[in-house]
């Protein structure tokens, strides 16, 4: 426990961590200030105008749907500009996930319910980057500076020391992420209350936002563990950064190009970015260019789906393997 306390203090005292926290706070402040400056509480007139526009839009959608049904039944001839999906249910307003609302027609008004998801994704992206960099530099700098050797002279149990470091990193990061996201979303909710609109937060708004948040936190922890593991294996912070850069250039860009030239089917399933997107957004729908070749007649759906479960398996498996390798190598390594 003492070791964890000492490591937590060491982690918090690191300049790089402090710099990243300051950057997070600065980004947070800038976003809040610009949002506040660009938003106002809508007047009753603005609100009723927006509500009327939304109602009109919904009415238009209902009419289009009704027309589609009648054309399909043959009771109405199709017009030149009619949009006719294969199945009219696709444009059934009753089945549409989110109908137009007044918020869509309010200009210069911050609507929390509309902005919460992209704001949360931004926070997750920042925290993921933060986690990876801090994870890599925390162990990388310690290995490089002799800090780990110092510690091992006091606690000559390598797995315990490395586990304490990793545990401290993940625990600290989780705490910071929870606090940051609560403060972040709370602040924007207050802006919505005071200088905009909160919007429709009923139904599955909070459960859906909560699911993104949980998956985001998991991603932050995985990124930190990954950075920590690669830096441990490479003995240096730059090993982690170099590995990521090399992966992106060689695999995500280079190999993707090669797959396209060789007309490999479903190349996206070999890319980590696909699983990352699947995990974060719940599922990702990808298109296989080779599925509907010239030989196929009739309707061809070349799309396929990666779900969050496959995303979790791949990301967890990769991180777990690298962390296990880092512990194995560190246990046997000569510290010179």
């Amino acid at each position: 426990m003492n070791l964890v306390r000492a490591e937590l203090e060491r982690l918090a005292a690191r300049r790089f961590v402090q710099l990243m926290v300051v950057l997070l706070a600065a980004a947070f402040a800038v976003t809040v200030v610009t949002t506040l400056a660009g938003s106002h509480r809508p007047s009753p007139a603005e609100l009723s105008r927006a509500q009327a526009q939304a109602a009109e839009n919904v009415r238009q959608m209902e009419m289009t749907y009704d027309r589609c049904l009648r054309i399909r039944e043959g009771s109405l001839p199709p017009g030149e500009n009619d949009y006719l999906p294969r199945d009219c249910a696709q444009i059934d307003p009753a089945q549409i996930e989110e109908l137009p609302s007044a918020a869509d027609y309010l200009s210069g008004v911050f609507v929390f319910a509309k902005e919460a998801e992209p704001l949360l994704y931004f926070l997750i992206a920042f925290l993921t980057l933060f986690g990876f960099l801090v994870g890599a530099s925390y162990i990388g700098a310690d290995l490089n500076s002799g800090g780990v050797v110092n510690l091992l002279l006091w606690r000559p149990r390598r797995p315990a020391v490395l586990a304490a470091k990793l545990g401290t990193l993940l625990g600290g990061l989780l705490g910071l992420s929870v606090l940051a996201s609560a403060a972040y979303l709370g602040a924007f909710w207050l802006i919505g209350q005071a200088s905009g609109l909160v919007g429709r937060t009923g139904g599955d708004f909070w459960p859906s936002l909560g699911a993104i948040w949980v998956r985001g936190l998991m991603l932050v922890l995985l990124a930190a563990a990954l950075g920590f593991a690669v830096a441990t294996l490479g003995r240096h912070t730059s090993a982690a950064l170099g590995t990521v850069a090399a992966y992106v250039v060689v695999w995500e860009l280079g190999a993707r190009l090669v797959f396209q030239m060789l007309e490999v089917g479903r190349p996206d399933r070999f890319m980590l970015s696909s699983y990352l997107a699947a995990w974060l957004s719940g599922e990702v729908r990808l298109w296989d260019n080779n599925a509907c070749g010239p030989g196929i007649s009739g309707y061809c759906d070349g799309s396929y789906t990666l779900t969050w479960t496959s995303g979790l398996v791949v990301l967890l498996g990769l991180t777990g393997a690298l962390v296990a390798a880092a512990f194995t190598v560190f246990r046997r390594r000569d510290l010179i």
Binding site: L3, A6, A13, S145, G147, N150
Partner: peptide
């Protein structure tokens, strides 16, 4: 090597704690 930004007191206190 020690962390350059830590004071000697803090460096030793963290070691003592660990």
């Amino acid at each position: 090597q020690f962390f350059a930004n830590f004071t000697a007191h803090r460096t030793l206190r963290l070691l003592a704690l660990a």
